[in-house]
């Protein structure tokens, strides 16, 4: 969308197109098949039939970052893993979103004080859109986080932004 962004004023065509594009994007958030620790078990449960993340169009877990829209960082991020996470994030095409799932990825969690090898929050290495707290979060919580991400996508627009808003955002 980069060639479209910031080129047109806000008008009926643009906002209608926004609505259509955002509907398409939020209805097909394909996550990356990427579980680091125990939160991944809950992520798998969310993907399975009882909770069924496919109801939200986010059930197509992609095995390659080049096809994924969403990286659910599900588990403890170690310093050794952090460089790999950054590489995976850089390999994902725009638009891309990151969800920090669980206490460890939000701020180190139980490894906050004595975890010599744990990154104190994955937002120190990649930008995070939605934080899902819990240890691990229940599948309902992950679905709630997904819905909040959909809300965030719904508010996106590619109309030209006022200069102040563009710099402050």
């Amino acid at each position: 969308m980069s060639w479209l962004e910031n080129r047109f004023e806000d008008n009926l065509i643009i906002t209608s197109l926004d609505w259509a594009i955002n509907w398409a994007r939020r209805s097909s958030i394909w996550p990356l098949t990427f579980g680091i620790a125990c939160c991944a078990i809950e992520m798998m449960a969310t993907g399975a039939s009882r909770f069924d993340i496919d109801r939200f169009g986010a059930g197509a877990y992609r095995p390659t970052p080049r096809q994924a829209d969403l990286m659910i960082v599900a588990g403890t991020v170690t310093y050794k893993m952090a460089s790999r996470i950054v590489r995976l994030y850089n390999q994902m095409p725009e638009p891309k979103w990151v969800m920090a799932m669980g206490a460890c990825t939000i701020g180190g969690g139980p490894y906050f004080k004595h975890g010599y090898h744990v990154v104190k929050g994955v937002d120190l290495v990649v930008p995070v859109d939605v934080y899902v707290p819990g240890c691990p979060p229940r599948p309902e919580a992950l679905l709630e986080g997904l819905m909040r991400l959909q809300d965030k996508i719904r508010r996106q627009t590619f109309a030209r932004q006022p200069v102040e808003a563009a710099t402050s955002a």
Binding site: Y79, A82, S83, G107, G108, F112, K113, Y116, H117, V119, K120, G121, L124, V125
Partner: peptide, 26 residues
């Protein structure tokens, strides 16, 4: 790391790391 006099790193490859509460996060 498991030596009892081990000192935590303050950063690793540009990622801030910390020792005590309060100064943990930038």
């Amino acid at each position: 790391p498991l030596r009892k006099d081990y000192e935590f790193p303050l950063e690793y490859h540009g990622i801030p790391a910390v020792t005590e509460y309060g100064q943990t996060r930038p």
